[in-house]
Amino acid sequence: MTLKSFLLRFSRLLALVLLSMVVAVLNPNFLKISNLINIVRQASPQIIISAGMTIVLLTGGIDLSIGSVVTLASIIAGYVLTQTKLHWSIAIVSALGSGLLCGLVSGILVAKVKLPSAIATYGMLWVGRGLAFAIMGAFPYFGFPNAFRYIGRGILLGIPVPIWIMVAVALVVYLFLKYTTLGKSIYAVGANPYAAKASGLRVDRILIYTYMLSGLLAALGGIILTARLNAVDQDIGAPFLLPAIASPVMGGTSMTGGRGGIGGTIIGTLIMTVLVNAMNLLRISSLWQQFAIGLVVVLAVWLDMWIKKKTA
């Protein structure tokens, strides 16, 4: 591989490495294994949630309901765990099921009713949120069984369980997009929905599956979060929505569809997590942290475009 094609392929990774190097110079603690593991663990739920968004973006759509689905799934898990005597695995199944269901409804609205995805999922944002509030009422759920909390806090072979789950999800999504006909069809629908239809692809079904996957992954992210925090409230999911859009785009996934993948999304999420971690290490006031995040998001994408232009 020539330097040029290497740069083109890994320009985003380069941005992440560059950022890490700067931070490491400013504070050597950054490179401690425990800190690095901590960063990846923190990023894991976001990566899983963003993976779902990545798939939706590949079809040329967007899923604005992701944050609400995280909330709804978390609250349903919390409900089953604390308000019923059912086994904790039922909590997981029903949380995942709620995610799938939300995705199914969004998918049908997009594919069959032909609503713009932003509108369909914006509706789902409020419906999911309202449902979550109605289920929980005013009092947060907390104090879950240890077996359930293991999902968020457990450590397996020296690595936190959320990381294991995230790696598994990333791998599955990677293989799914690259080596299945459904994965290829998702790119095709995003690249040209008309040609996809005229090629005999079942575009409706493909879209519905896409939103269901997005809902499922959001729910999974919610479960990990709930297990880690050992409590769930109404605001648990909302902060995940915008980063779920930003990180795939930083990672090179096109918002018009047909281009991108999970690898870039992981890097995009890590860039943001590293940044927050670094600012904490460097004791930068949280007042300025958001400012810096905005700056880095823009810089990272610009650097990528600049490298592409220089090497093209």
Partner: peptide, 23 residues
Amino acid sequence: RDGIFPILPLQTNVVMASLKQLF
């Protein structure tokens, strides 16, 4: 409009109508 997937590679374009048959 209805024929090609402009941003997808040549090989993907060729197999796109026969995914089910081939795989």
